[in-house]
Design a protein around this nucleic acid. Structure first.
Lengths: 117, 117
DNA sequence: CGGCCTGGTTACCAGTTGGATACTGTGCAA
DNA sequence: TTGCACAGTATCCAACTGGTAACCAGGCCG
């Protein structure tokens, strides 16, 4: 997940050229990327995903949960806390995603050329 | 491209579970698959892609062409003939696509379980 | 001349996605 | 009791996607 990572969160990010899409919706790939290093709370996800409104983030998380890629856990003690984390199935997506980023890096110039001309 | 191939062209195909999407539109992956073995004419593509109306197929092909994955060639001799074929860039998508199909086959039961429960 | 084949185009429409903006309910904490 | 953090909801709306159905233009065939 190293490749393209920094760029993916930018507004005019080059991943718009990427011919791969992971999950059903626009933000699924980024959400998964954000969960790569362990469980995250809703408000923690909102920081890197600042361009995603809470409604849309919730939608994305619900879909990922339904599809078995993400597990939602609700705690009430000591305070209310909800965490999202990748399931084993979700984690197994990381490797294909990494390969796609590799592909994209390998063919970046060609992708750009095609769009420009 | 062997995996899932037979099913992908069915109406209720299991690829609706697939968390990967290639190209911008719904039919891009199937179009690319159809071009795997060499150039095809518009009317030849319409046979396996019978569920795709000509308008939508044209759209898909135009997008693939713009993105540099497909090359459109028009002949007038001896009769009018238009062929579509994968460019090198388009062809380079086949390997990632194959890997995605492998991933899907490896995790098929988990994908099904997640949706059902 | 009248069809037919090829490779589309046109107009219209419904459903879905994504976004803007505002609001809510629960539990602390001062 | 007022305020704040957290984790969302509620409405509304514009744009995009995909689909239906019909149409079309050029060229050959008989």
């Amino acid at each position: 997940m190293e490749a393209l990572r920094a760029d993916m969160f930018e507004e005019l990010c080059p991943s718009t050229l990427l011919p791969f899409r992971i999950g059903g919706d626009k933000w699924a790939a980024l959400v998964i990327t954000c969960l790569e290093d362990g469980p995250r709370r809703f408000s923690e996800l909102r920081v890197p995903l600042a361009r995603v409104t809470p409604k849309v983030l919730t939608q994305s998380l619900r879909t990922l949960e339904r599809d078995g890629f993400v597990r939602r856990t609700e705690y009430t003690e000591p305070v209310r806390r909800v965490t999202y984390e990748l399931t084993d199935l979700g984690r197994s997506l990381l490797e294909p995603m990494r390969l796609m980023c590799e592909w994209a890096n390998d063919h970046w110039d060609e992708l750009l050329d095609a769009r420009e001309s």
